[in-house]
Simulated assay, not measured.
Amino acid sequence: MPDSLPVHLNRTDIHSLEVPKEFDATGSFDVQLHNHGEALHVHLHLDDSLSSIASLDAPNHYVQADTERPVRVTIDGDGPVRGKLKVVTAHGAETRYVDVFIPEGGTENEPVIVDDDLAKPQPKPATKSEPGLEDLSAGPVLAAGGFTVLIAGLITLVLTQNMLLTVGAVLAVTIVLGLLFVAVRSS
């Protein structure tokens, strides 16, 4: 479990602030804001020496009444470093400083924090399949049908030399192609 720096808010009086004088961090740690009273704003600031190897998730925090809120201080570099963490309540009503020491090798043995969302199955991406007959637009289908009707009509006219038979063959092929087109569109 990571180290935790306790900060007590509103415990003795409104906007009161209680912090330890010093804190030794063996790696990244949480500033644990314990609010014992009314809601208030807390500002955290790392001095220049601490900010050279550490960073805050955010400097300003609203802490609701009678709640606890952790604020992560991430150690990104290697110590030894000694610096000050400034803690301010209620827009400057109270200010305290904590001497923070990060020893050499302060980032060793850091736990890896894994987001809970990684444990949930992820949806599979849609695979692109070959276009089916239903993906064809009406233009190519009608063009193919018209060409087929024309060829069927010419073949019938040449073979039979009967205009009535030719018109019947063209009509039959047109009906079959129309039914095929309707069946493809409705599926």
Rank of each mutant, 00 (worst) to 15 (best):
A90S: 14
I102N: 01
K120Y: 07
D76P: 00
V114G: 02
T67K: 14
F101C: 01
L85T: 07
V100S: 03
A93V: 06
F101K: 04
V71E: 13
I75H: 00
V81N: 02
D99M: 10
D117W: 08
P80E: 05
G105V: 00
R82Y: 05
P123Y: 03
V112A: 09
E110S: 13
D66S: 14
I113N: 11
G105L: 00
G79Q: 03
I75A: 06
T95Y: 03
G79P: 07
P80A: 11
D115N: 12
P103S: 10
L118T: 08
V87P: 01
R72Y: 09
D66C: 06
K120L: 12
P111D: 06
V81A: 02
E110H: 12
G106Q: 02
R96Q: 12
T107K: 12
G79T: 02
E68G: 06
V63H: 04
R82E: 13
A119M: 10
P80L: 06
A65W: 02
K124Y: 02
V100E: 01
G92K: 07
V73E: 03
E110D: 13
H61N: 14
D76T: 12
K84N: 14
T74Y: 00
N109L: 12
V73P: 05
K86N: 10
V73C: 02
L118E: 13
V88F: 06
V73Y: 00
G92R: 05
R82T: 15
D116N: 06
V63Y: 11
D78W: 03
V88T: 15
H91I: 09
R82S: 12
H91G: 05
D78K: 04
G106N: 01
P80F: 04
D115L: 05
P111L: 07
L118R: 14
V100D: 02
A93Y: 03
T107S: 06
A90C: 12
D116Q: 06
P123C: 02
E110K: 11
P123W: 03
T67R: 12
